[in-house]
Design a protein around this nucleic acid. Sequence first.
DNA 1: CACTAAGTATGAGAAATCTCATACTAGGAG
DNA 2: CTCCTAGTATGAGATTTCTCATACTTAGTG
Lengths: 234, 234
Amino acid sequence: MQKIDDSKLKHVLMAECDYGSLFGSNIAKHAQLMKFSPQEYIVKNQVKPDYLFYLVRGKAKLYDFLANGKDTLVDFFTPPCFVGEMELMDTQSEPFSVQVIDDCYCLALPVAKYKQQLLADPVFLRNVCLYLAHKNARNIKTASQNQGFTLSQRLSAFILLTSHDGRYHEKHTQVAEYLGVSYRHLLYVIADFVKAGYLQKDQRSYRIKDEAGLQNLAWEVNLSNEWHEKASDA
Amino acid sequence: MQKIDDSKLKHVLMAECDYGSLFGSNIAKHAQLMKFSPQEYIVKNQVKPDYLFYLVRGKAKLYDFLANGKDTLVDFFTPPCFVGEMELMDTQSEPFSVQVIDDCYCLALPVAKYKQQLLADPVFLRNVCLYLAHKNARNIKTASQNQGFTLSQRLSAFILLTSHDGRYHEKHTQVAEYLGVSYRHLLYVIADFVKAGYLQKDQRSYRIKDEAGLQNLAWEVNLSNEWHEKASDA
DNA sequence: CACTAAGTATGAGAAATCTCATACTAGGAG
DNA sequence: CTCCTAGTATGAGATTTCTCATACTTAGTG
């Protein structure tokens, strides 16, 4: 972790994510810009963070470590989003680990100094509630999909979701963790996709050869989502 | 659903869960007492609730319905807890289903009338944040345990958790849903437990014969929890 | 350049879990 | 009392997913 004293950059980032509007008061100006490098922890298992972070650039992942040594990648953090808000709200709460994937820039407010103020600010509280509610809904969706669908189904949905220009190139190791299956099994299913002609491997990435085929497999998974999206359009 | 106009009962229940202290204003007095019977929905999939509920008696379950017809029992609601708070915070959000298990008594505030007021009340907002944060943490725990541990492990933890006086009697159908496995598989594992001498079936319920054996199996699962509980004691 | 860590790949065998079929039982509704 | 539903039970066979072992490749580091 590295504090960055570049007030120009700080203001650009703040403007970009409309940081000031998260609060009812002018507290935003006390935020400190920080940079975290890949592999670093923004919040570490069991260690209460000293700051309330707001991720404005980069990508991180939320882990839960189980006692049997296994870990689960629970969720991804993509900007803009809070990090460490659970611990701010509830001193009792047990921090999960948030580990950096790509360089992360965070706006950080020292908890000790501003906690009181934040907890009395309805604008801020409303934003946190909203954020928590969304996060929770997403988690529930993911978890129940992990249980209700087979890996081929979830993987095809995932490939369609994360591919650009007809190419899929995510790290298998990470994807396996996210989809909650063993690396080995993921590789099997990908091999199947290649055999079935859905994907074609070229060097470092995969090219989508039969999007319709994948759509078809992903159909039910996506249906479960659209469903809700439609509902919220109403 | 049935509105209950028994102001004595209402006040007893309010006192019991300290309802008034959830709010910064005196809004509590506008709450209406309602009763829901088993199988009824407090919040139904895709239908925005008209009230903000606070469950004070009974038991309910949170479902997510998937497009392939499968459903996942995501979480149990036990008093005291909010129901419908997601939908209050975010009009966009897609309601999940909350279905009654045992008779539920709820204190209900009409959203249309008091939404503005609630969203400006820091005391209330703080409580919702806290509630959401806890709920989220629990969901994450459950989900990652569902993935990281085998059914025997989770089931033994579950049995130890829900048994009274050395007896276990939950409905297999519900437990299967909650633990995210097929009814069939659950029965297999229970049969194994009986064979292994952990449980003994008598009529309608099971008697725990070898608690140590179960403890042993549940060991890692519980470790993952205690861990966090310890952490939050600190 | 050699060493190391992370990511990629693949095989073999085992386990966890699922689906489908089929029965039996208890309690509520008519 | 009979019908119906929900819950309980058990078998057979198929899928899904896991663990372990083993290798090869690539990028970074001293």
